[in-house]
Amino acid sequence: MARGKGTPRRTRDLADDDDDMSPVSRSPSNAISSPRRAAAGAAAQGTSSPSRLALNHTGNPAAPEKPTRGPLPPSAETTYHQRLRQILVDHRKARRAWIELVIRGLIGRTRAVLELWVDVELALKAIDKQKTVTSSNVRAGYLFAQSAKLSEQIAAVEAVFSNLEDIVANMQSTCERVEYLVIETAKTRGTVFAFREAMWVTWPLARFADGIQSLSMPYIQSLALVRSLLDTLLTFPPLPTSTPPTPFEAESAPTTPATRKSPAEPVKTRPSNEEIQAAMSLLAVQPLLPGKASDWGNDGWEEVLAVEVGGWER
């Protein structure tokens, strides 16, 4: 009987196995952490959260300063870099001087000439209508005074055009300087340094030379156009340059070859108003110069130099 009341050995083994698989088992995977360990785990999770990482990433809003020079340090520059920079600066001065002379000098003085010519025309018409000698002499005196002013204004316009010729000559000299610099660099430092290696950022020396040549050509062509436009705008019939002589002086004045009019000399005719307006518009627009939308205009070229030339100050 005592044997029947005991638990079989196999049954006890199965019961022990059930205790090991129960939810309240003290296995390492189900162990309850202590409060200190739980707090440390929460802090670790909070530190590695995406929002915290984003905050740390943008915590320093100060962006790195943009370098004022190219990747080539100033100490590594050669005399070729310095000479090229000076050539580029001289070319920029010439382009700015051209714009200043055309806009503030040539156009304004040419308009003053056209306005004076209107006064001269009115004086000529008034003299033709006058019947009395006294009023005719008064009108003639005013005509001579305005004619003298007109001659002065025409001389001022021609002086401005002479300055434009000097600017274009300076540009041509700059082109020759940069071309000579490329040849000299190729001889002393090699063709790779002159035609392939970057001077400051990416452009080699030869590419700067090509850019100067391409940017100078429109100014050379524009000079010829300005001369043609001025020939149209400044064409006037012969004007009196002094006070009219008295009848006695006119009769007693000797006739010399210099005072005789050559029959073969052509008489200048004033262009029509439409031709004058068209010439004035072309003079103000400067159609041969590249505009702001062009990559090879002044603005586009300055943007390239600001990036490609070390120490370039706009």
Rank of each mutant, 00 (worst) to 15 (best):
R26C: 02
P263L: 09
Q82E: 10
W117D: 15
V133D: 10
T185K: 09
T78F: 05
D90C: 05
I103C: 08
T243N: 08
E265K: 10
N56R: 13
K125H: 13
A94E: 06
V160P: 01
P8Y: 05
M280Q: 07
E100V: 02
A279G: 05
S135Q: 09
S49T: 12
V89W: 07
P218G: 04
S75R: 04
L289W: 13
P290H: 07
T79S: 09
E115C: 01
D19A: 13
V182I: 14
S27I: 06
V118N: 11
P266V: 04
S27R: 12
A306K: 14
I107T: 12
N298L: 13
G311M: 05
E265N: 02
D295W: 10
E275T: 02
L101Y: 06
M199D: 02
L225H: 09
M171K: 02
D299C: 04
A198R: 09
G41Q: 09
S214P: 00
T7N: 06
T174L: 08
G300P: 05
A63S: 13
P263Y: 01
P64C: 06
V168C: 14
T58V: 09
D295E: 14
T58S: 13
L283V: 04
N137H: 14
G46W: 04
G310Q: 01
V192P: 01
A159T: 12
R314C: 11
D166I: 02
R26F: 04
A2M: 08
T11E: 15
P287S: 02
D210I: 07
I167E: 03
F195M: 09
A169N: 07
V113A: 14
A278L: 09
L223A: 10
P247F: 09
V178C: 02
E265S: 11
L282R: 11
C175Q: 13
R3P: 03
D18A: 13
A250F: 13
N60L: 03
A194H: 02
A253R: 13
L150C: 01
A250T: 05
P247H: 04
H91D: 11
C175S: 12
G291N: 04
V309R: 05
P61Q: 03
W301T: 08
I212G: 04
D90L: 06
E77Q: 12
K66E: 14
V120S: 06
V133T: 15
T243H: 11
P238F: 00
R207N: 05
M199P: 01
Q45W: 05
I32D: 11
P245I: 01
R207K: 10
L116M: 09
K261H: 12
T132Y: 00
T188E: 15
R12E: 11
K187C: 05
P238R: 04
P71S: 00
A264N: 08
S242M: 08
R139L: 15
V304E: 02
R104A: 15
L230W: 08
F144A: 14
D128K: 15
E158K: 15
R52H: 13
P8H: 14
E197D: 15
Q286W: 03
A97L: 10
V201E: 12
K5C: 11
W98K: 01
P247T: 01
E65R: 12
K149M: 06
A155R: 07
G41I: 07
A2C: 03
